[in-house]
Amino acid sequence: MKVTGHELAALPKQASANDALNPYKEALREHFPSREALLQEAKRQTQRQRMLKKVTTGVTFSIAFAFTWVIDPVWHREEMHTMVGQQASFDLKDGSHVDLNTNSVLVVEQHLYSRQLQLTQGEALFTVQHGWRPFTVFANQTQIRDIGTIFNVRNTDDGAVVTVVEGSVEVRTANAQRILTKDISVTTQAGTISESRCTSANVAWQQGRLVFDGTPLQEAVAEIQRYRQAPIVIQDSKVGLMRLSGEYDINAIESLLKTLPLSLGIHVNYQTDGKVILSK
């Protein structure tokens, strides 16, 4: 290629112009990133957005999980009950088994993370199917948590009576906590727990029996009354202190009452409305 004189003369001038613009170019580069820098920054922003999305998703899931754990929603609820003098057996959704004694009401709630049962009145024997969800029974300000067992719970006016047949349970009240093992029975009252050895009388109802061993008649009558609609009245306080022993058929309460004149020498007076009065 042939270069003319005029072109040769122009080259130094053009180089001089470029040299003069270099400072401005460098200043502009400081304020405006290059194409490569823009691509790198865009890539970093994409990575940050992906990471933020993962973190947000994880936090949202954790919050949702924690919320459902705290709320522990009910997915199944059922109520079981028996009439006076009636006993019944029920199989629960989780495979556990419940025997209800006379005049009892049990509300069973299968929660997402727990099994909660409210014995609002009466008595029940629980045979628990073990699982990862805790099995807890509530009865008159008493909480009974299954650890691996068969246990009996009776709702009383002042608290509850808990008897372990097999395994162990944890009993809690407002002021006390106790682990019970086989053949141990406790009575809760006003937030306290009193412990005693289990007697056959605690669970004799399972075999259809009432067992009394030198029991004051006033206490025995309170137990008998659970299986009878019409009231039994002790007219004389001294009669209430007499002691009754023996085993009796739950389904023959009237026969039991008729034996009292022979066993205790007291008078049993039947009223027209079914009421029974016990006197000297």
Rank of each mutant, 00 (worst) to 15 (best):
T120D: 06
F32P: 08
L241T: 15
D157K: 15
T120R: 03
S263E: 12
V98F: 01
G214L: 12
A201D: 04
Q40G: 07
E223P: 01
V164M: 10
E223S: 11
T188E: 01
A88Y: 03
E78A: 13
M242Q: 12
T156E: 07
R145C: 02
S279Y: 13
S96I: 03
N22I: 13
P134F: 03
W69C: 11
R228K: 06
I150Q: 13
G95F: 01
T272G: 09
L210V: 03
T142M: 01
L244F: 07
Q118S: 11
N251M: 14
L112Y: 15
S237C: 11
N152I: 00
Y227I: 05
D273H: 03
F135C: 06
V162M: 02
S255N: 15
T259N: 02
V276I: 15
Q118C: 04
T181G: 07
Q116I: 10
V165L: 15
A17K: 09
W75T: 11
T102R: 01
H130G: 07
N175W: 08
R197N: 10
A230F: 02
I253H: 02
D273M: 05
A10P: 07
G274E: 12
T149W: 01
T127R: 06
L210E: 01
Y270Q: 14
V3H: 13
T272Y: 12
V70W: 15
Q235C: 09
I63G: 08
A37K: 12
I144W: 07
G246T: 11
L260Q: 00
C198T: 12
H97P: 00
R77T: 15
V268M: 04
S279Q: 08
D99W: 08
H76Q: 14
R228M: 04
L241G: 13
R50V: 08
S185F: 02
K25L: 15
Q235S: 14
R48G: 06
A9Y: 13
V74C: 04
K258M: 13
E123Q: 13
W205P: 02
Q206G: 14
S96T: 03
D72L: 06
S168E: 05
K258C: 11
V268F: 10
N18G: 10
I144L: 11
V137T: 07
